[in-house]
């Protein structure tokens, strides 16, 4: 017995860098909870990102609708402009009605 202790102390004596560790491991419940926590965290991140993307999709949809609406208004304005500047509109205008027909076109002699 003495020799046994003697050899152990002797080895400490030979290598001063050797340290003694006591084993500290996580329990089963802790590991399970940690895993669940990580999964929940990841799921939350996924849901958050998904919701964020869906939010963008709603924005895109709204902007698309606005573009379509503005495009339609532009079309309406183009049509209105074409109507107002049409030959038919000019012919039927009050100004045209008050004008007289020109029967002779005169040209300046050079």
């Amino acid at each position: 017995m003495r020799n046994q202790y003697a050899s152990r102390y002797a080895s400490y004596g030979r290598n001063q860098n050797i340290v003694r560790h006591s084993s500290r491991t996580l329990g089963t419940i802790t590991v399970s909870l940690t895993l669940v926590l990580i999964v929940v965290l990841l799921a939350l991140i996924y849901v958050t990102q998904g919701a964020k993307a869906t939010g963008y999709d709603y924005d895109i949809s709204r902007v698309d609708s606005e573009i379509a609406e503005l495009q339609a208004q532009k079309e309406d304005l183009a049509v209105e402009q074409a109507r107002l500047t049409s030959v038919v509109a000019s012919e039927n205008s009050e100004v045209a009605a008050s004008m007289e027909n020109a029967s002779v076109a005169g040209y300046a002699q050079e």
Binding site: G50, A53, T54, Y56, D57, Y58, I60, S61
Partner: peptide, 10 residues
């Protein structure tokens, strides 16, 4: 699309 018929990018 989602329930509101909005196009989704996913």
């Amino acid at each position: 699309t989602d329930v509101n018929n909005v196009a989704l990018s996913i």
